[in-house]
Design a binder for these strands. Structure first.
Lengths: 189, 189, 189, 189
DNA sequence: TATGAATGAGCGTTCATTCAT
DNA sequence: GATGAATGAACGCTCATTCAT
């Protein structure tokens, strides 16, 4: 049977994650999301009581995607290999970054100014990424793992922004190469 | 002499630069800006035909502030000193960054997704910063000056975002120390 | 034996009578009533085709409760005793009246403005009360029984409103004492 | 010059007072009021921030009308004459009462169930009436002036409700005659 | 019969923009 | 030029009612 309720909820979350990312949180209307999800506007509210709840679900969807990606890296045997896989994944998304920036980063830029709980949600998602990177550096025996993780993620978020602002995917590629080299040069596994 | 028209325009631009940065472009209303500038709402449209023009003026105001800052650095005798002065300036604004991010960066994150000209404006302002940094690296004799400049600005933009998302000014301080050391270690004046 | 359909219908009517009275007709949603009755929303429409039919049923429930009360008074031997029992019953409900007014009165205040049949329903219910009171006065030999009945019921409806508006049950108590005395002073049994 | 802003605000308040009374608070939409006042919907919010503020203004308009009426009675030399003038005024409005009830009473019946401040507004308006009536009874030397005032106002509110529910202005007339006689029979001026 | 889900019209409200003076 | 007021097109959200199973 096609189109169950689970389907619909998932379609809504997927549509929200996509459209909110592509258009920005404030510019996106419930109608935009509903249209993308092929769900009647009124029906959205059966699944989500407010627009903010949809935004939250979209952030959680990003967290899920992030976890799925890092989980996949666990098959790699060394933390260095995992970090480099992360960079490679980012490199693949550079065209998208040129158009809309980093999904987590650009939504967090809007949510970070809020004071209604969604800023905390953004922090949680971003924290997942930093934590995972930190873990890799820790496994590499780095005492400054947290600082390195913050540095790496900041570099990625920053270059995502520049890549988007200058609409130039080559910027992402160049910067990721630098990060690649930097990781290679680090002591530890 | 009472408040002139120039006064009013400048007050509007200053208010726009501040409020758009603090609240975000989409969340800010013309009324918000008018109130901050102490200008009657109806009068705004004498100086700016649309909200977008106000946004553009706010970005240009950021460009002007940026130029003023880098101009002030020209009294310093070495490019290294100038770059480190830039970092020092950013360090001083870390509390503000924790609340609202980088003015140019957070507005660019919203404008970068547009396709109406304001994305180009954001690119221009961000370009000013990268160009100036690049010039310093060139003066230091670095052949990879552009790449270094992109890297430095990206690091700053990224840590601005993280500092805002995690509402933690210490992140900015830590990362800027790293960048300081990195510049110190570079070859050239 | 589990909850039968009769059960459900009765629960819905009871819930409607309660919630419509407490919240007002327009402020009450079908979902409110369904929740209170512990009946799924979609199922309400098997028993009642429209919200108005539920409102009508609630009014009829009030009529039934009213009849049950006056029937119980029939064991009393004199009409005066019956009227005084009525007042005593109202006195007991004064706390409720302070919160929501008189059930019949406050719903009738909303329904009286309509022109869709529910105003007639309200008139019927209110008529039951006036008729019963009139009958007592007639039994007391009063030629002006109808007028006395209208006066008594109006006094009760009015003091119910004031008790609710001023949120003060003492108003009801005071006024009912006056009515008690008034009845005592009347000629006839 | 026709149609000033004061005009418009007053038209809105007058329209609100009328339509909210005739249709009930919840059944009335902002569009209803705007249409009656011949004001564009969006413009209503220039004068009133919320629907509730319009409701409050409508209640205050009733208070104003009530004060105007009682003020006019001050030319009468005895409190009895004033009270009888009040009853006469109510008698004149019996056709309206048959269609919509008492303005203050029927709106208070809806507002009395609230807990958001409008219930207090309703209490204030109703209080004005009770206070004025009490003052007349006090001037008549009645120690039980408050109780008499509550009784009189309750009788009026109750008969207003019955008159509306039964759509019969004669009920109002009859009951007011009884109240007239009652006042005539009272000791004092 | 029973029910969660669907539907769409409409509500209160906001706001960029325009108008009248 | 300056300004309070006006305008109307959305927007987020609610809800009576209907549908599909």
């Amino acid at each position: 049977m096609a189109r169950t309720q689970v389907d619909k909820r998932e379609r809504l979350v997927a549509a929200a994650a996509q459209v909110l990312y592509e258009q920005g949180v404030e510019k996106t209307t419930i109608a935009d999301i509903a249209r993308t999800a092929e769900v009647p506007v009124g029906n959205v509210y059966y699944y989500f009581k407010t627009k903010d709840q949809l935004v939250e679900a979209a952030m959680e969807e990003q967290a899920r995607a992030l976890r799925a990606m890092t989980d996949a890296f666990e098959t790699l045997t060394t933390p260095k290999a995992r970090l480099k896989a992360l960079l490679a994944g980012w490199a693949e998304q550079r065209e998208q970054a040129a158009r809309f920036g980093c999904p987590t980063g650009s939504m967090s830029a809007e949510l970070g100014k809020r004071d209604d709980g969604l800023n905390r949600t953004a922090a949680t998602v971003m924290g997942l990424l930093v934590d995972w990177v930190e873990r890799q550096f820790t496994l590499m025996g780095r005492a400054d793992a947290r600082e390195l993780a913050v540095s790496l993620v900041a570099s990625y978020q920053g270059i995502s922004l520049l890549t988007n602002v200058f609409a130039d995917p080559a910027l992402m590629a160049g910067q990721l190469r630098r990060l690649q080299d930097w990781i290679d040069a680090l002591d530890g596994g």
